[in-house]
Design a protein around this nucleic acid. Structure first.
Lengths: 326, 326
DNA sequence: TTGTATGCGTTATCAA
DNA sequence: TTGATAACGCATACAA
């Protein structure tokens, strides 16, 4: 590996001059510049980012902390983050925290000690003290970390309402919400949206709690349908729960959407390729990841900007688990 | 941020001594050691990994280059790589190359300039010169890069045979293989396995090429069934193609598995949660990622070990798109 | 317009 | 058993 010193020697100049042409800082004569560039080419010189980081106290590394890349919600988010980061010359470090505070703390240390320039966090715990006073910018994605930390999120409440209203409008008479885990912000808000819409319409409803997991939700839905066979509409807390609901119904010979209508949430790829394709409330996942990363990079570069929380609208994707009208 | 110098000052020793207790290298008196540790605690000192990397010319960074984390095959692989890396104190940099050689080269530069210690590559091109002579170890995952680069892969040929033999054994009389793109090693081998098994059984068969993509494959399968309505068994090049095949058949009112049996490949989560659940040839994805990472770390630490290619056996997961016997 | 010298925070060599 | 000090490769004051 050639160093800046090798280049300087070969070009017959000092390292300072080489550095100047490298960073386009300060004056340098056209001829010397050409000589330096020639030497760089000949030696195939590439600056050592580690040395640069040491001096600059900035590594152009961004940490992406998420619970589990294996969860189908996250790959698209990760892709967006990585795309934007790379575009701005940043590099993404992948961290699967499993929502484990200890593990998170550990990643945080590694990231800090590597002088990461910023963090995008999608974690499960609220009021997570790990992230305040961190002296690098942090953006919370799809989660609330702390009031001091800007968030990029979707309108879960509005989405919950929208889903519920669709079920009602499509003629359901007894609707259920199989909600995600309590204490998870988005699950709570979706539930609130459901309740609000149901109350407002004066429709009979029931709520049951599950996990964002297909097998567990199959069990939950199964019990739900045993207890309330009159249910003709389900708003699932997310697409995984929706898939579980559809499978359970189909296995019981309940026809979808004729006898039971189902609406999911998230708009993960699975929802579209499932058969029947699942009607769902789509979050603009890629856009959210993109926005979060752009915001983070702004925070990194011009520390003075006001970091504002941003809420994305959601969109209904009507597919085959609800009745098509008209 | 406290530095080693601050610690030294506070403990009343030299930086060399602090370094010694930090790295447990060289002798240091129990009392001084205690004093140093006390100072470290008090200052909440954390070593600066960037400085360490500069001196050691090793950053404990591992690059993971894959086409697209959004492709459902990769999250589990990425998870495995990250788990193992983290366990050994390495940090994973995520790179989506889209199979674009230019982009890959770019990532490679960034990684190299950051002194990454090794690379795990899952790319599409064979004989990719980007990776030879790279002076850091590289492991190819699920792909062949170059004869000089160790691979971790699954037995695609055997799996193709296995899938085909299952269809035959389950009573199919005219089978088709909707294969993945030619020039993609695994797709070729699965196809060879198909041909071999079909020839050996003397069964009527047909092969058509598609992409590892659901919408495109729906089109392909649709045309296939138009042309050869007598097909009663399909070996899909991967699970995405299998999903497409099942959907097309179901939409046409062809019952599965009674009239048409389908076998996929890969064992991605989607295959199991689809309804009907898809019979498939399961690759041990997590295990492969784990093995590749452990191999890479061995290559990083003891450069002298012989880097050997490793082929994992695949396993049949019989589910609902083939006829259950007895 | 260019060069010298210093520091970024470590580790490791050599003396003491 | 410990301490001074020279690297690691780069960027930047400051001089020239």
């Amino acid at each position: 590996m050639a160093t800046i010193r090798d280049v300087a020697k070969r070009a017959g100049v000092s390292v300072a001059t080489v550095s100047r042409v490298l960073n386009e800082t300060g004056y340098v004569h056209a001829d010397t510049k050409a000589a330096v560039i020639k030497a760089i080419k000949e030696l195939n010189y590439k600056p050592n980012y580690v040395a640069r980081s040491l001096y600059k106290k900035s590594s152009r590394l961004i940490g992406l902390i998420l619970p589990d890349i294996t969860n189908p919600f996250f790959p698209e988010l990760a892709r967006a983050v990585e795309d934007v980061a790379h575009q701005y010359g940043y590099t993404v470090v992948l961290c699967n925290s499993d929502g484990d505070l200890e593990k998170e703390k550990n990643y945080l240390d590694v990231l800090t000690q590597n002088h990461a320039d910023g963090l995008i966090v999608t974690t499960n715990r609220q009021n997570n003290m790990n992230y305040i006073d961190l002296d690098i910018p942090v953006v919370a994605l799809d989660r609330t970390l702390h009031e001091s930390i800007p968030e990029v999120r979707a309108d879960h409440y509005g989405g919950g309402k929208m889903a519920t209203e669709l079920l009602i409008q499509r003629g359901c008479t007894f609707i259920a919400h199989v909600r995600g885990p309590s204490q998870l912000g988005p699950a709570d808000e979706r539930c609130r949206g459901f309740v609000n819409a149901a109350e407002q319409a004066g429709i009979a409803y029931h709520i049951v709690e599950s996990q964002f997991d297909i097998p567990i939700s199959e069990q939950t839905v199964s019990e739900l349908l045993d207890t309330y066979p009159q249910i003709d509409g389900i708003f699932a807390g997310n697409d995984l729960i929706a898939v579980a609901a559809v499978k359970v119904a189909l296995k019981r010979g309940i026809s979808i959407p004729e006898e039971l209508q189902v609406v999911g949430f998230d708009g993960i790829p699975l929802s579209a390729c499932f058969y029947p394709a699942i009607t769902t409330i789509v979050q603009p996942i890629y856009e959210m990841g993109k926005w979060a990363t752009e915001l983070l990079i702004q925070l990194i570069t011009k520390k003075n900007i006001a970091a504002k929380t941003h809420c994305f609208p959601v969109k209904l994707a009507e597919r085959e688990t609800t009745k098509r009208m008209g």
